[in-house]
Amino acid sequence: ASLSLSAAEPLGIGRMATADEIAGWDIDVRPDGQGLPPGQGSVMNGELLYESRCASCHGSFGEGIDRWPVLAGGYDTLTLERPTKTVGSYWPYASTLWDYIYRAMPFSAPRSLSVDETYAVSAYVLYLNDIVDDDFVLTQGNLARIEMPNREGFFVDNRPDSPNTRCMQECARPDQLEMVGTIGGITPVGHFRADVDAPAASHDAQKSLED
């Protein structure tokens, strides 16, 4: 298929994108460091930035305020009943952190961080996760070399992995079926059940309920 792709006659729709146009939007970064702009940031500079622009949601130690995401800790929890998946405990590559912060954080002001600020705050999140020391300076040159604890933790989709067969009769032993009911009261059902005390069906409605 890729042969015919380049061989075919273009229809002539759209126009060439200029290098300048592309540069402004081409913000993605890969594990091998491709896409990282020149720049740098220290854990120390990162701390100040983090405290002022991140900690209100993610907590001073990356512990997460209320239901906002936890960013640090959780080592060796991936096999527990309630794992804590964080940058440190779960993420395979440091590039993802830089890329994500630069494209999406802080939540309410995406794309407001400069390149150097992104290096700094990324360094600080790595520091919160004990991945770098407090005197570390993150740069275009060293980011791809950072080894994340869970870098070997992933494997490519190998489904179907849970085979069933189209059995029609005696597919289970009736006496071995165990039926577990619903934990009640935590989903909005007021629109079809009159007898329950349940959450509202939107965040706004739930908030005004609780106020």
Partner: peptide, 26 residues
């Protein structure tokens, strides 16, 4: 591609929202 067909920028288009700029909604 397409020398003939340019991106037609209508009078009302705010170029602040065009690349390389980051549009306001982003």
């Amino acid at each position: 591609a397409a020398a003939a067909s340019g991106v037609a920028v209508a009078a009302s288009v705010n170029t602040d929202n065009l690349p390389p700029n980051e549009p306001s909604w982003s």
